[in-house]
């Protein structure tokens, strides 16, 4: 256990192991994404109420789920780097922020496009949409704060504090927005209340959720590798790597 943790703190080991993980995880992820998209788009029956527009669910829901989970990944990494001063956790936190922001954006965009045929409007100030928008702002805050610091070590710590503050706030924001929406809910918009989903639609959705988790992991590792190279540019193992011309 301790030797594993010790290895986890070593940049060359992490660089090598993430490379060998990516070698099989990245093709697998792309394959799962392609399979899920083809399955969802072409081989599932349309929803009896929404018709074909519901097919957006296969990218909207996974993006939203992983975007939210990504914030907790980022905050956990931030907490680890603050408490145990683990440099690799700092690298992971910095790597998670842009990926999470991109997925949040994708979830918001697909949600807006889905809203047009379903509710007749692109944007509704619905509780979930509004909280996703605030999540995007929280992510962008971390990205912007990191860029604003000249001293990157301090930037990592400041972002860790900010993401922890955000973690405490996310449930509060979510609950208050939820409550706010139930207060203001306009009567003209009907949401599909049925939570039951047919297995023929559920399985591709589950596949896509798994694929998006894998995608998040891939992007996290890719970002971490690039960040590691930049931070460790003066060290022997990176020089050796550069000489090898990999």
């Amino acid at each position: 256990m301790w030797s594993f943790l010790h290895k986890l703190g070593s940049p060359p080991w992490l660089y090598a192991i993430s490379g060998s993980i990516l070698r099989w995880l990245l093709p697998l992820t792309l394959l799962a994404l392609a399979a899920g998209v083809v399955w969802g788009l072409l081989f599932t029956p349309p929803d009896f109420r929404q018709g074909n527009s519901y097919r957006i669910i296969y990218i909207h829901v996974p993006a939203a789920v992983v975007a939210l989970a990504g914030y907790y990944v980022m905050a956990t990494a931030g907490a680890i780097s603050l408490i145990w001063r683990m440099k690799m956790a700092d690298v992971a936190m910095k790597a998670a922020a842009p990926v999470g922001a991109a997925l949040t954006f994708a979830a918001l965009f697909t949600g807006a496009v889905w809203g047009k045929p379903t509710w007749g409007t692109y944007w509704v100030w619905d509780a979930r949409i509004t909280s996703m928008l605030l999540l995007l702002f929280l992510y962008l805050g971390v990205v912007v704060l990191y860029e604003a610091y000249e001293n990157k070590e301090a930037a990592g710590k400041a972002c860790a504090v900010l993401s922890l503050v955000g973690t405490v706030n996310i449930p509060i924001i979510y609950k208050s927005v939820d409550w706010w929406y139930s207060l203001h809910q306009p009567a003209s918009i009907k949401f599909t209340g049925d939570s039951t989903i047919d297995p023929s639609m559920l399985y591709p959705l589950l596949l896509m959720i798994c694929a998006f988790y894998a995608l998040f992991t891939c992007c996290l590792l890719l970002n971490m590798r690039a960040e590691l190279l930049q931070r460790e540019a003066r060290t022997g193992w990176v020089r050796k790597l550069a000489r090898g011309g990999e």
């Binding site: 990245l26 994404l33 998209v37 788009l41 349309p46 018709g51 074909n52 527009s53 097919r55 957006i56 990218i59 909207h60 993006a63 842009p98 990926v99 991109a102 997925l103 954006f105 994708a106 965009f109 697909t110 496009v113 889905w114 047009k116 045929p117 995608l215 891939c218 992007c219 890719l222």
Partner: peptide
């Protein structure tokens, strides 16, 4: 065409594909 919903479905998928390509 997807019975009239094609524009929405395909634009959502295309934009998501672009986002995924970018983050990779």
């Amino acid at each position: 065409a997807m019975e009239g919903h094609g524009v929405f479905v395909w634009s959502a998928y295309v934009v998501t594909a672009v986002v995924i390509a970018l983050i990779l």
